[in-house]
Nucleic acid binder design. Structure first.
Lengths: 188, 188
DNA sequence: CACGATGCCTAATATCATTAGTTTTATAGA
DNA sequence: TCTATAAAACTAATGATATTAGGCATCGTG
């Protein structure tokens, strides 16, 4: 059985990502993960340095997919006015978080430094979005503007994922309205 | 030694809260917590049902303290105009999160249902804040308005705590500006 | 055709939370 | 004042967990 590797690092990460999203991070144990790959737990250490290392890979994957979805959305709306592009972007952001709540949350709330995604991922991903905002704010204010926008989107979906909006009402409308308000404040 | 309880539930929770904030949640093990209280780990189970139960108590304590700080801030600024009160509130919110980053994050990102704070805490705490916003938006829009404000504040401090703002710049100014923009969007 | 590295395995360890069963002691009632 | 009871501590044990050590099979390369 040994030598021709039965699993690759990519397969390991992909499976771990799926398992975390499907059953929760704390349910994604190395034993279960190994079993799903037809292997025993210690064998995983030939493809990763530690579980923190695996989590970092998962988080980088999540970050990449999030920004890929956002860029795709921006590309598809490239002829719309800037405010409309931001609205589409915000919708895509929330849709991603709702589709992958656990891995999304994991990527942005990891305390262990070892498991944090490489900073360059986020920086690279944010730049095209910031470019759209620059159309509305000018270059000087665009860094603060994107930070506010990211905070608004991230905060909303985090509260939503963690079930902190328990007073009913239309959450879709509240989200859209929040973005609208923010954009109005920027341009006004 | 036995019978006259050497620890109370309140002392247990207070110590656990301090230890979590000081050393990180994952460092707050029952063995260490018990040792800090001069007792062995199994004895803790006379004062709690499970660790999830303890975490829930910690989170409720955090939530209460956060809202207490916010209400205090509002009370101290009761004669200021509504927009100014919101600014003070936002500053107090961020100050609390920065002073207690670990327990703050824990309270708002707990996946385990067992460990989630009782919903009524948040609801009660949010109402006075919503009242201020109602002055600016009218009653109809105030629920969505407070959700946006909470999302903005929570998102910003969460990103900040998790070191996701790595591109330098003045974060104090970015936060203030974000709140300003949001308020302008609401009133404009 | 052998040999060495690769990648799997079993076995073992340390650290968790949690449970079972025992021991001690303060207090309430005789 | 004495004693029985219940509270609250303890030790010991269990089952997960990640991780390490060491052995063994197998494939590609000389």
């Amino acid at each position: 059985m040994p030598h021709p590797a039965q699993i690759t690092r990519d397969a390991l990460i992909a499976r771990a990502w799926e398992m975390a999203e499907a059953e929760g991070v704390e349910q994604m144990t190395l034993a279960k993960l190994a079993a799903a790959l037809g292997v025993k737990a210690p064998s995983l250490y030939h493809h990763m340095r530690s579980k923190a290392d695996l989590l970092r890979a998962i988080n980088e994957r999540t970050t990449q997919q999030l920004f890929a979805a956002l860029h795709e959305t921006l590309a598809a709306a490239s002829d719309a006015p800037a405010a409309e592009r931001i609205h589409r972007l915000a919708a895509a952001y929330r849709a991603f978080a709702q589709a992958h709540p656990i891995t999304y949350m994991l990527a942005f709330t990891t305390v262990e430094v070892e498991a944090r995604p490489d900073p360059t991922f986020q920086e690279q991903g944010v730049l095209p979005i910031q470019a759209v905002l620059t159309e509305l704010t000018g270059a000087d204010a665009s860094l603060a503007a994107i930070r506010g926008l990211l905070a608004l989107m991230h905060g909303f979906v985090m509260l939503e994922i963690n079930d902190q909006f328990r007073r009913g009402g239309d959450l879709d409308a509240a989200y859209t309205q929040g973005i609208e308000v923010y954009l109005r404040g920027i341009t006004g």
